[in-house]
Amino acid sequence: MSTETTERYRRALETRDVELALSGFAPDVIVHSPLTSRVRFTGHAELKPLLEVAYTHLRDVRFHTDTGDATTRVVVYTARIGAEEIEEAAVLKIGEDGLITEVTLFVRPLPGLVALMDAFGPDIARRNGREFAARLLSLAAKPLLAMVRMGDRRAVPLAGPRG
């Protein structure tokens, strides 16, 4: 049953089908943000806007790993958020009924993670009726994204091995 669960998770993301995704999650699912341990989404009511935002921004999704056992699976995929590439690993806890009860998300590389923050944060705040927070998040993320992109392109190669 666990591979059926991850197959539904994969299909929902690839087709951007929010209802299909929700059908794979337990009603009281907990989703841990890849950005901070201070944010988690609990239940379908909080998860649905997150999925809608994610499915709006993620492009070129390609799953490459699905491993684990009947109660814990790890799925990994690559995608794009705007111009940035990301790789996301999701640790899925699966209940006896085959529904996902808990998800912990991990995103790399850093420019992709910051692009995710820049795209998702304001949209999620808007969907939660928090327009001021959406504007603040958007303003705060822009300089951080510029610094991370510049550091990734210019500074990181300086520290790498000589070739």
Rank of each mutant, 00 (worst) to 15 (best):
A12T: 03
I94V: 11
A45Q: 13
A134H: 11
A159G: 09
V18W: 01
K142I: 04
L22M: 11
G24H: 02
L105T: 07
R80D: 04
P122S: 09
M117Y: 13
F25I: 05
R80H: 10
R8L: 11
F120N: 04
L105S: 13
S23T: 08
G43T: 04
T78E: 15
L35W: 01
V31Q: 12
L113C: 01
E102Y: 02
T15I: 00
D69M: 01
T78M: 06
G98Y: 10
L58K: 03
A125W: 02
V156D: 00
T72I: 09
V91A: 11
T72D: 08
L116Q: 10
T5Q: 01
Y9H: 14
E84S: 14
R40I: 02
G151M: 02
Y77L: 11
L110R: 15
M1T: 09
S33L: 05
G121P: 05
R153N: 08
L145R: 15
E4N: 13
I30W: 06
R40Y: 06
P122H: 05
P27H: 04
V107I: 15
R40P: 01
L158Y: 04
E46G: 14
A83S: 13
E7M: 12
L51N: 01
H32L: 13
V18Y: 01
T36L: 01
K142E: 08
A54G: 13
L137C: 06
S2T: 07
I81F: 07
A79P: 12
L139K: 04
P111Q: 10
Y9A: 03
R16D: 09
E14D: 06
G112Q: 10
R127G: 14
D69H: 06
R154K: 13
E96V: 04
E46V: 08
A70E: 15
A21L: 13
P27V: 02
S23N: 03
A146W: 12
H64P: 03
E46F: 08
G121T: 11
G163Q: 08
V91K: 08
P143L: 04
M150Q: 11
M117D: 10
F132L: 15
K142S: 05
E14R: 10
D123V: 00
P157G: 03
S33D: 15
L116I: 05
